[in-house]
Design a protein around this nucleic acid. Sequence first.
DNA 1: CGAATAGTGTCTGTGAGACAATATATG
DNA 2: CATATATTGTCTCACAGACACTATTCG
Lengths: 249, 249
Amino acid sequence: MSTEEERFLADYSPAEYSSVALTVDLVVFAVTGSTLHAALVRRGGHPFRGALALPGGFVQPDEDALHAAWRELEEETGLDLRAHRAHVEQLATYSSPERDPRMRVVSVAHLALLATDGRTLPDLDPGSDAASAHWHPVHEVLASEDLAFDHRDILADAVERLAGKIEYTLTAAKLVPEEFALYQLRHVYEAVWNTDKLDAGNFTRKLTGALTDTGRKITRSKGAPAAVFTVRNEYLSPPMTRPAAVTNR
Amino acid sequence: MSTEEERFLADYSPAEYSSVALTVDLVVFAVTGSTLHAALVRRGGHPFRGALALPGGFVQPDEDALHAAWRELEEETGLDLRAHRAHVEQLATYSSPERDPRMRVVSVAHLALLATDGRTLPDLDPGSDAASAHWHPVHEVLASEDLAFDHRDILADAVERLAGKIEYTLTAAKLVPEEFALYQLRHVYEAVWNTDKLDAGNFTRKLTGALTDTGRKITRSKGAPAAVFTVRNEYLSPPMTRPAAVTNR
DNA sequence: CGAATAGTGTCTGTGAGACAATATATG
DNA sequence: CATATATTGTCTCACAGACACTATTCG
């Protein structure tokens, strides 16, 4: 132990000081259609063999947790982050002494949002090892699947965080290309809130105030062409209101 | 290193694994009048000698961060938690490798709310050592004082978290006795939002829906007696709206 | 043309905010 | 009585939600 550390410990009384292994766990979300998906890993080894788990890894000595989250996002999913718009933010820290039966591991969970066009999910490194990540529909997983460690809690917390945050911010736009039509954004809201009751007309009216119209239009298979927008204002005022229906609080 | 740990590390590739010291930092809030106060410690030693800092301490091997926060709340402030209603929740984790110049310390910051009657602040162990905590007005400290480490960021994040949270929950009631009058709750909102523009009549109307009237009344120095309420519903729907004025975002 | 979709118009109910009015306490 | 305060009443404006309507595209 260095003298610096000894002086440090002298600051504290009593000096019970122990070290922990610090990891990040990632909740990686992407949307197709009106379904929210998460990138999950099937565990090959003990403990929780065969169960689904969140991707993650150690925080290194020279980086903070957010940096580790970005690095692991690239390493564990095999994503080319130059080709995909991505957003990462801290979720919460899980520190129960028993959360990993092997040793003390404290994990700073992060929320990662990947932009999609709403039709296909980003490729998750098909060539990597057996423990590579695959997309799973979130609300179905939460309803039926067993998850390793405390990853069910983390995943549920992540969904709730995102569901709440898109009420008063345009965080939903992180799940959609930089330029997007309103139906894409609407599908994100439906996917996160697990509902289909969003009136397209009212949705348009409520959101256009926070967006910039590029003047361009795009067309789907059928129907009138939709205007293409970019985000003007990160905050929504007044906020969107989540339908009371499917909300599981 | 135990065999368990070795097997554990084999899960990861590459196995760069390092340990960190894990601490909790506490943002302890209480309200008198319409002013939000935080319990802060004046640092005696290097680094940041003389600067104000948040109370905190190490997470011990057998406890999680929340438990450590409760323990440190009692130890560092000398508060008798049997005599004071208190609420503690996790805020965020601060993990920059340079946040403590002496060694790698990762801190899970927590928000602690102490109930007061709005007239006096809880006593902060007057008999303890020189580094004992004292109350400071939060918005003044943020405007003028230097804080040690990254504690200014943590304190500002805590205020913003609380300011946002009382918009859609009755978390403000954690800063007030279990049974309270509406003016007490209104003062909490004014203190946290750093404003005085809350109309008493409208405030009453908006909140009574989430409260239970005990039927009893209390009287201040002058004026009509105020009804005494308890919390019925933890969530506010529709939410309170924060006045645009003083909000510093 | 028929089907699907985008965006606008319209109506109604709810609630926020401003402020007046009333009731009730103290000194 | 003068003053302070709590609570209710009233009015207006803004907006959410429901839904009809129009315009525009594809097949």
